[in-house]
Every structure is written in structure tokens, then in C-alpha cells.
């Protein structure tokens, strides 16, 4: 289990990185935290000709809060975001999801951009990004593009990033007052990828749900938003029955994949359970935060 032969470059700045990417296109792989890419290399499932190591690019690990958006540089380590007060206060759903990613030692290296560029459908951050309608800033020699989350995820471990583009930043809208969140998941063991995960966010205004966001991990080849359930929730007051009904709507049309860790049927059931529990937890959280 040794990495295949490869060339390595550690560009000094983003421009140099973009030059290399533009030249090699999909012959090159960007190396961020390496927590997904290096296992793939060790298993020789990936064989890029060149690794472009972006760990030295300080400009990609900035965090800034402006105009209702929290912009997170792609190279921001997961543990840094996890420990950030700005993240906890402005994007609580992201803060709730981060501790569930792997283990401390994984989060020491793993990055926000890496997780979202890798786009594992069972991962936490893609579901969070989809639920919150995050925006992805990608850059190439031709300039920047901003891609909304709904368009970002493009199949199993695939995104709409072009091979010459670097993900430089992800922007999350900050939570409105009265918002409660929960990230719940069922995994085989603590720290494992979720069999099914749920990102849930409810905004309550005067006891009424004014915004509802639900996105699943692990039920398809990309994260899945539960729009029908969201529509049902908005305008209602939280109640057990409402959440039951939301669970039915959220899962009615799911057609999850089966694998060693759970059948399609199992995933569907657990997804419904998570909606019920997640909405309750988010509603409780909204109460706590207000």
C-alpha cells in the first residue's frame, strides 16, 4: 500500500498553482489536507502525474465575515474552523457538523475546501453546504466563477469544478436570529462516515417556522435537499405531528444506494428517523439560542 510514482510541486502562490493546473488539467491533483487523497493514492486508486500541494498558500486559509456571509478559505483546516468563534456564532450548522468529521488527527490536516471538493456523498460538509445554499468560489487563469451549492455537486465524488480550476473559497450565509440547528448522523462507529446524515436548520419567528433547511448525506451519490419537507414546515409551528409528516415527505422519494453498511431500505428508514429527531433537536436548539 504505497503511493505510486508522482511529481510534486508546492507553488508559492495561487497564480503559480493556477498555471500548473491550467497546464496539466486533470493529469494533476490538488493536494490539500490529503486525508482523502493520500488514502486513494496509497490504494493506487488515483494516479495523478503531478501533485499540486496548496498547503503553503496562506491566502487560502482566511476566514472573513461580511454582509451576511462567512467566507472560508479552501485551505482552512477543519480543526481551525471547529475552534473558530466566528464559525460557531455565524454558521452554527457548520459548527455542529465539524466535530463529527473523522477524528481529531484527521481534522488536524483535513480542510474545508478539500472535503467539499472531494464531495463524498456521505460526508458532513457537503450536506451542510447544500442545506445552507453555500457558494463556491473557483478560480482559473481565466478568472473567478461563483457556483451555487445546488450546482456544485455533480455525481459521486464529482463537482462542477473544471479541471483547470482551484476551489479558493466557500461562502456560507450567516444564520438569522431565531435559528436552531442540528447535524445528526447514524454511523457504524464514532468518527466514521455517516451511513445517513442530516443537516437541519429551522428559523423560528414568534414561534412560527420562517425558514427550514434539510439536507441528507448518504442517501444518493450527492447530498440531497428535502425541499418538499421544507415547504411543509415553513409557516407552521413546531410539533411532533408536523415533524412526523415532514419525515414522510422528506423520504418518500428517496432511492438510496445499498452498501456493506446498510441496505437502501435501511437508509430510508434511518433518514426518516433522523428528520424527526433532527427537527426536534433544531427546534430545541432555536429555543436555547433565543
Amino acid at each position: 500500500m504505497k503511493l505510486p510514482y508522482l511529481e510534486y510541486a508546492a507553488p508559492a502562490d495561487v497564480t503559480e498553482a493556477l498555471g500548473l493546473l491550467g497546464e496539466l488539467q486533470d493529469e494533476a491533483s490538488v493536494l490539500a489536507g490529503g486525508q482523502s487523497l493520500i488514502p486513494l493514492l496509497a490504494l493506487r486508486l488515483a494516479r495523478p502525474a503531478l501533485l499540486i500541494d496548496i498547503n503553503g498558500l496562506r491566502e487560502l486559509s482566511r476566514l472573513s465575515l461580511t454582509d451576511g456571509w462567512l467566507a472560508i478559505g479552501a485551505m482552512t483546516r477543519e480543526y481551525v474552523a471547529e475552534e473558530s468563534l466566528a464559525v460557531a456564532e455565524s454558521v452554527p450548522l457548520l459548527a455542529a457538523a465539524l466535530p463529527l468529521i473523522g477524528h481529531e488527527a484527521i481534522r488536524s490536516r483535513g480542510t474545508i475546501g478539500g472535503s467539499l471538493a472531494h464531495a463524498d456523498p456521505a460526508a458532513e460538509l457537503p450536506a451542510v453546504a447544500l442545506a445552507l445554499d453555500a457558494e463556491f468560489v473557483v478560480r482559473s487563469r481565466d478568472g473567478d466563477r461563483i457556483i451555487p451549492a445546488v450546482e456544485w455537486f455533480d455525481g459521486y465524488l464529482a463537482t462542477s469544478r473544471r479541471p483547470d480550476e482551484l476551489l479558493v473559497e466557500v461562502r456560507f450565509p450567516t444564520a438569522r436570529p431565531g435559528t436552531g440547528v442540528a447535524f445528526l448522523e447514524v454511523a457504524r462507529r464514532h468518527g466514521d462516515f455517516a451511513i445517513v446524515g442530516l443537516a437541519a436548520s429551522l428559523t423560528l419567528t414568534g414561534g412560527q417556522i420562517t425558514d427550514a433547511r434539510l439536507a441528507f448525506a448518504g442517501v444518493s451519490d450527492i447530498p440531497v435537499r428535502a425541499a418538499e419537507a421544507e415547504n411543509l414546515l415553513v409557516g407552521e409551528r413546531p410539533s411532533r405531528n408536523l415533524f412526523e409528516e415532514a419525515a414522510v415527505r422528506a423520504t418518500a422519494r428517496l432511492n438510496p444506494p445499498a452498501d456493506l453498511h446498510g441496505s437502501a431500505e435501511y437508509r430510508k428508514k434511518v433518514a426518516a428517523t433522523l428528520v424527526r429527531r433532527g427537527l426536534q433537536a433544531a427546534a430545541d436548539n432555536a429555543d436555547e439560542r433565543s
Binding site: 462507529r189 468518527g191 462516515f193
Partner: peptide
């Protein structure tokens, strides 16, 4: 080890 799951301190 993502498929053959050994118990950990949490299990």
C-alpha cells in the same frame, strides 16, 4: 479498515 470495522474505545 473503512469496510472491515474493528471496535474502538467508543464501542
Amino acid at each position: 479498515f473503512m469496510d472491515y470495522l474493528l471496535p474502538t474505545a467508543s464501542d
